[in-house]
């Protein structure tokens, strides 16, 4: 009896110190995560708040004063959309991005289908070339592409941008889809072959319907890439009436035309679509990032 008592008496303080230590560790952990999130979110918040502040407020005080003296205005958005051409740029961004995404998914899918599910000489070499092309700096393509599309007289249309954005992402797309296509059991394809399906049917009726999730991953990644790119549209569409949001916002930022608050409104308009997409379709985004990155 006394032995047991003395043992509990001994272990009680020890236990409580280690419990206290654990508690402290937990507090430290949650604090660190909270601080990280705070630091990462504050800039976004500052943008959002500034879009509703007047020019005069912003020139006098920091954005956080909006929480002290809340005087929201919508004039920044009105100005951005009607005076600085951001409204038009929204349309241009859509025209630039949507066909690019569709084309990237289609081209990557047929390429990955051939590489993953057919056997031929040079298959491995081609696949490795795709791996290599993924990390090629896009600057490399600028000069020759510019000469090429100038010669064809296609600059000033969206065609060069679609083609270049597709060409730059398709190697990655093939890499991403290859892994998934290769993992589809060959029994399925063989069963379809015995059932009398031709290769195009196997592709469109068996492979593609099974690959919905990975195709969505590629689509969302390419949407963000194309929607957010600056350099290619800057060069091929210029900052005139065809400029997409990135180019428009960049030129507003550089020229300071329209003032800071209009710029923030324009910027917020340019990020809202990808922000909504990444929050709602996070699952597909994560899958795409991991499918394309983890190669160990």
């Amino acid at each position: 009896m006394s032995a047991i008592e003395s043992r509990t008496a001994m272990s009680a303080p020890m236990q409580s110190t280690s419990r206290l230590g654990n508690r402290l560790k937990q507090v430290a952990l949650h604090t660190a995560v909270f601080l990280l999130c705070l630091v990462w979110f504050t800039p976004v918040l500052s943008l959002f708040v500034t879009t509703f502040r007047s020019e005069s407020d912003s020139s006098r005080t920091g954005w956080w004063y909006a929480f002290i003296e809340w005087r929201p205005v919508l004039s920044n958005y009105v100005e951005a959309i009607y005076l600085t051409g951001v409204g038009r740029s929204v349309v241009n961004s859509i025209v630039l991005t949507v066909p690019t995404v569709l084309g990237t998914v289609l081209f990557s899918a047929i390429g990955a289908f051939a590489l993953a599910r057919m056997r031929f000489r040079g298959r491995i070499a081609l696949f490795l070339a795709m791996v290599g092309f993924q990390v090629l700096p896009p600057q490399l393509v600028l000069v020759p592409m510019l000469k090429f599309f100038l010669a064809l007289g296609l600059t000033g249309t969206f065609i060069p941008v679609w083609i270049i954005e597709m060409g730059l992402t398709v190697p990655f797309g093939i890499f991403l889809l290859y892994g998934f296509f290769a993992s589809i059991p060959s029994d399925l394809v063989e069963a379809a072959r015995i059932d009398g399906a031709s290769e195009p049917r196997i592709f469109f009726q068996i492979i593609l319907p099974l690959s919905g999730a990975v195709l969505a991953s590629l689509a969302i990644l390419q949407f963000m890439i194309a929607w957010n790119h600056l350099l290619i549209p800057l060069i091929f569409l210029g900052s005139g009436s065809l400029s997409p949001l990135t180019v428009q916002v960049a030129s507003l930022a550089q020229t300071n035309a329209g003032g800071l608050n209009t710029l923030t409104a324009a910027t917020f308009i340019s990020v809202i679509v990808p922000l909504v997409l990444i929050v709602t379709l996070q699952k597909y985004f994560v899958r795409g990032v991991l499918g394309g990155a983890v190669k160990g």
Partner: peptide, 18 residues
């Protein structure tokens, strides 16, 4: 942590200029 990833670098640059 992912939110900034969804934005263009242009937007990021504007935000950080502020």
């Amino acid at each position: 942590l992912i939110l900034p990833t969804a934005m263009s670098f242009v937007a990021g640059a504007v935000i950080w200029k502020m």
